[in-house]
């Protein structure tokens, strides 16, 4: 037993990961390519699927751009300054990690839905949020808020504020201090958070189902398209688009990990 113990443990772990991760992912891959590469391309190359993939990509890009800027600013606020409401801000930033993403979507509908006060007024003004594309971006902003903050915060905390103060003392203005002193050392961390944000946004499902209305060619994102194809009895189409999403995941996730490793800081 004493000699076999480590091997038994290792076997258990490999078994658990195999049936829970390797098997389902393989099943999707096999289904997607079961009828040959031509069938795979054909399953993707229809208007609805391409529109869904494109919508997922550009909404994710916008959400990433916004939350990269705001996330860096939030990290800077949390690390550098002592102000009333700071503990609340720290707690709120972590909240999207805990809240079910479907609930996050519903919360946005509660505020911006057509029956609500704010949403009704905005819809009358010609800017509907819920069941429209802005709602998708808003949902992504909400669920991905913690990523850049969490990536940048520990790295920023390791930096000595004295460097910034010295630059100010030597006559540099705020912009120069930010671009020349503050930004360069945290750049890998910012990039790591941004990649994570984008990866999560492309794969996001629950909040978007609640918010977007899921109208083909307009507000149907790729993961929701996959659900539609499963329910509509087209597993080949669902598998093909899933494989594209899988491609995003296996490229972006290791990239984020690599950048985070380079960024250093305490984890």
């Amino acid at each position: 037993m004493n000699r076999a113990g480590p091997y038994l443990l290792r076997g258990l772990v490999i078994f658990w990961v195999t049936w829970l991760v390797v098997l389902p992912v393989s099943a999707v891959l096999i289904r997607a390519f079961a009828d040959g590469p031509a069938a795979f391309v054909e399953a993707i190359a229809n208007r609805t699927a391409l529109d869904a993939l494109w919508l997922s990509t550009w909404t994710a890009a916008i959400a990433t751009a916004i939350n990269t800027v705001t996330g860096t600013a939030i990290a800077w606020a949390l690390v550098r300054w002592e102000f009333p409401g700071r503990p609340l801000l720290a707690a709120l930033v972590d909240l999207p990690l805990a809240i079910p993403t479907l609930v996050a979507g519903l919360v946005i509908v509660a505020l911006f839905g057509p029956q609500s006060l704010v949403g009704g007024a905005l819809a009358d003004a010609g800017l509907p949020i819920a069941f429209a594309r802005p709602g998708i971006v808003l949902a992504l902003l909400l669920v991905t808020l913690p990523f850049v903050v969490r990536a940048v915060e520990p790295v920023l905390a390791e930096l000595d504020p004295a460097e910034e103060e010295a630059a100010v003392m030597l006559g540099a203005n705020r912009r120069t201090v930010f671009l020349r002193v503050l930004l360069p050392p945290i750049l890998p961390a910012v990039a790591a958070g941004a990649v994570q944000t984008f990866a999560r946004s492309v794969a996001e499902f629950g909040s978007i189902v609640a918010v977007s209305g899921n109208i083909a060619h307009k507000t149907l994102t790729a993961p929701v398209y996959v659900l539609g194809e499963i329910e509509g009895g087209n597993p080949a189409g669902a598998a093909a688009v899933s494989v594209v999403l899988l491609g995003f995941a296996v490229v972006l996730h290791p990239l984020a990990r690599m950048l985070a490793m380079r960024a250093g800081g305490r984890k």
Binding site: A27, I230, H253
Partner: peptide
């Protein structure tokens, strides 16, 4: 194995669902 353990964080849950259905 280390990378595979992290995969559930990166994958769209719908895709996983499809895998188990298949």
């Amino acid at each position: 194995v280390d990378a595979l353990v992290e995969l559930p964080l990166a994958l769209s849950p719908v895709m996983t669902g499809l895998g188990f259905l298949l």
